[in-house]
Structures are given as structure tokens and as C-alpha cells.
Amino acid sequence: MKHAIIEIEHVTKTFGGVVANRDVSLDVEEGGITGLIGPNGSGKTTLFNSIVGYHPIDSGSIRFQGQEISKFRVQEIARLGLLRTFQQTRIYGAMNCVQNMLISIPHRKAKFLDMFDRQARADTEKGESLLDFVGLYEKRYLMAGDLSFGQQKLLEFAMALMNEPTVLLLDEPTAGINPTLINGLIDRLRRANEEFGITLLVIEHNMRVIMNMAHKIYCLAHGELLASGTAGEIQKNQNVIDAYLGAH
């Protein structure tokens, strides 16, 4: 049994009177791909935001590599090596792809004077090879804002890899991507996991994708944890089927 790199215990988060997460507990195994599914409004993105520090949680605990991070701020958590991508893809639109990559280098050990560093050749080469990895090498000098939505999504993924995270949280990586390209993306996510050793936590609506990829899946509904298990177990779980068909 591998050990858990993120341990979420009894997390509750409310907005005003609305409970977005109630008493959610889950573990993300180191080196694995963990899936997070659930109908719209079930609190997946809220849980993501709680993990990466976008808002305080009401109660419970979130630990990363054994360290309590629920009080940390966004930047500190990112520098620990816990990174997320956005559902509504966010890139730096008025900079070209290579520049987007260069500024995405890990800032973990950045000392004060590193701000004035020149761009290292090694960083440029690494950025370009990652752009190649996601298939954007040809477009590397185009403004990121001029890319199509799908390309921006790939760029954001490449930027995340550039940051050398320990864990990467992906919020619907295949949403808005041309179906013919999804297989390629799944393949790249797998390679990121296997070759770069990045632990993945993925929110996904596309069942084919997540069932194919994830080693373990958690299902949320109405802010609560409904079920967990392997893809096979989840597919047979009557609660999950009911939640998706709306019989709740």
C-alpha cells in the first residue's frame, strides 16, 4: 500500500447558508492518478479551491506530505509543489508561449535576487521541449491569447509541468477539447504521471476518460462523499448511478 500524499479529513465548507462540502474525507495516493467525479454543483471545484488555498475552510484538516496546509495561502501552497489548473483555462494572454513557459519555472527556492536573473538557456530548452510534448512547439512564438481554447488548455498543462509540481490538480482537463484529441491528452496525462512522476488529482465529467485513467475514484454528490473505489467498483455502485440520473 502506497502512502497518501494529500490527506483530507472531515472538511466542511459553507458559503453563507449553502453547504458546498460537508465532512469530506479522501486520500490522494502518492504517484497515482486519483479521479474526482460528481454531478454539477456537487462541490468538486470548491474542494479543489480549499486544497490550494483560495478560501479558508470551516472545519477539518488538509495535509500535504504530512504538513497541515489548510491555513496556508495560495502562493505558499503552490511553492510547496501543489499546483492546479483552472476550469476556465488561464494563461498569460499578451505573452508568447515561450514566455509563458519561462515564467512558470518553479519558484520554490527563488531567493530575492533571483528576480533579476536572466533567462537560462536550460530553461528555454526545457520550456520548448515541454511545448513539444503537448504539441505546441510550432506555435511557440505566438501570443498565448491568440491560441484556440483547446491549445490554451494544452499550454496551461505544459506550464504546470514546467513548474515541476509534486501533485497536479486538474480541473476538467478535457472540457472544451476536440473529441479526436482527447486520446492524445489522456496519453500525455499518463506520461506526465509515469515519466515525470507527478501525482494527479483530476476532476472530470467525461466518464470514459476518468474510468480509463484513474487508479482510484471518489464521487461527490451534494457536497458529500458518496462513494470511492476503483473504476470497476464505481461503475457498479448504485448510489453513483442514482446521483448521476438525478434520483436523489
Binding site: Q75, A78, L83, F86, Y92, M95, H107
Partner: peptide, 16 residues
């Protein structure tokens, strides 16, 4: 430039 284009993204990427 990153802060100009999207400050929240920059924070999320760990930029100081």
C-alpha cells in the same frame, strides 16, 4: 507581464 495578464494565475503558479 504575468501579473498584468492574470494576477491570480501568477499567484497560483507560486510567483512571489
Amino acid at each position: 507581464n504575468a501579473i498584468r495578464d492574470d494576477e491570480e494565475k501568477a499567484e497560483g503558479m507560486g510567483i512571489h
